[in-house]
């Protein structure tokens, strides 16, 4: 008797849970699939709701988000997607899961190189793939370009995460775009020959390795430096950050490789207007400033102040190649990493 009662309660709980979970297509809502972590974006979304009264529902997903959108088809509840890395936006665009948006505000706030020409996706922040160099052991001018990393004078001095990580793949894809497949392969082979240890760990672990004297330089994204230098919860990371300088490669060349975090409206958005409002909100001063302050990223909107720490690394020339082009070379970049056995 008690067991039956318990079973009934459990079934009812499941039922009601499931119904709560089904998104209601109410007027003042927008449903978001996000590659960006909740703790990074929730403050923006809360502010958006406060200003507009539009409720934001989020699924923070990663691998498989594209396949979910594809499977759900025209019945998908998602109105907009938030992603990091051009590769994800490009894959969604190629799969025809996004729709073009014509918004004066977005066009005004976001420079042309950071948005799709037809308004299929929009970049919201940029991050540069820089060289972290030991303050003690790297002389000025030793690493002025990515090409220097493949030169003999860097033998045994480089640390990096896996060559297969999205950030390294995008960097290699940009080198293919500028110099061709053969030159890119020679470069990757050269860097591999200069590694101090097998690729492993994440971007922060490489800075730690520099601090410990295992290597002299590493590749990393700019915002990690911000997170390390201000880390109150793991104070030892401040020491790692203090051991290195941020070098922007290619200042005399094509410019430092940058990638974006971005957003787009889905093909079958039910709340398209609200989705556009959200994108516009994220491109305006308030959100752009928050991206800079909280995540140590570079805002795409001109005139928005950078975080003082980020500003202290100085301004730099960014590679202005169209991000579409980089995305198109990613598969080839991944194959090069296999051919040179980068992680082996």
């Amino acid at each position: 008797m008690i067991r039956k009662f318990l079973a009934a309660v459990a079934a009812m709980a499941a039922f009601s849970q499931a119904f709560q979970a089904t998104p209601a297509y109410a007027a003042e809502e927008v449903n978001l699939y996000s590659y960006r972590q909740p703790f990074l974006i929730q403050p923006f979304l809360d502010e958006f709701t406060k200003q507009t009264g539009i409720k934001v529902n989020v699924v923070y997903a990663q691998k498989g988000m594209l396949e979910r959108l594809q499977a759900e088809g025209r019945n998908t509840p998602a109105d907009a997607v938030l992603t990091v890395d051009i590769a994800r936006l490009d894959a969604l665009a190629k799969a025809e899961l996004l729709q073009p948006i014509d918004s004066e505000i977005l066009k005004k706030n976001i420079p042309a190189q950071y948005r799709h020409p037809d308004g299929i996706w929009f970049g919201l922040t940029t991050r540069a793939r820089v060289v972290y160099a030991s303050k003690d052991r790297v002389k000025p001018g030793e690493v002025a370009s990515y090409a220097d990393l493949a030169e003999p004078h860097m033998k045994g001095r480089i640390c990096t995460r896996s060559g297969k990580h999205a950030y390294n793949i995008s960097l290699l894809a940009s080198i293919i775009a500028h110099k061709g497949v053969d030159a890119a392969e020679t470069w990757a082979r050269g860097v591999k020959a200069n590694l101090a240890r097998r690729p492993q760990g994440n971007d922060r672990a490489q800075v730690k390795a520099i601090k410990e004297g295992i290597c002299d330089v590493s590749l990393g994204n700019t915002y990690y430096m911000g997170f390390m230098a201000t880390n109150e919860k793991s104070p030892e990371q401040k020491e790692w950050a203090a051991a290195v300088n941020v070098l922007f490669p290619e200042q005399d060349g094509v410019g430092t490789h940058v990638n974006i975090s971005g957003a787009a409206v889905t093909e079958y958005a039910k709340n398209k207007e609200n989705a556009v409002k959200l994108l516009e909100f994220l491109s305006e001063d308030f959100a752009q400033h928050m991206y800079a302050e909280q995540n140590f990223e570079y805002p795409v909107k001109k005139g928005v102040k950078w975080h003082p720490l980020v500003a202290s690394w100085g301004t730099f020339k960014a590679d202005d190649i169209n991000l579409d082009v980089i995305a198109a070379h990613r598969a080839e970049a991944a194959k090069i990493m296999d051919r040179v056995d980068f992680d082996g």
Binding site: Q20, A21, Q37, F39, L40, V59, A61, K63, G64, F227
Partner: peptide, 28 residues
């Protein structure tokens, strides 16, 4: 991995809580 991609809106589990920080390399 299944939870993260198949879940409903605004739905977190302990594992996804771990992941959102671990993915940003914030292990503490």
């Amino acid at each position: 991995p299944m939870t993260i991609v198949m879940r409903p809106f605004n739905f977190d589990t302990l594992a996804t809580e771990v992941h959102q920080f671990a993915a940003a390399e914030q292990f503490a």
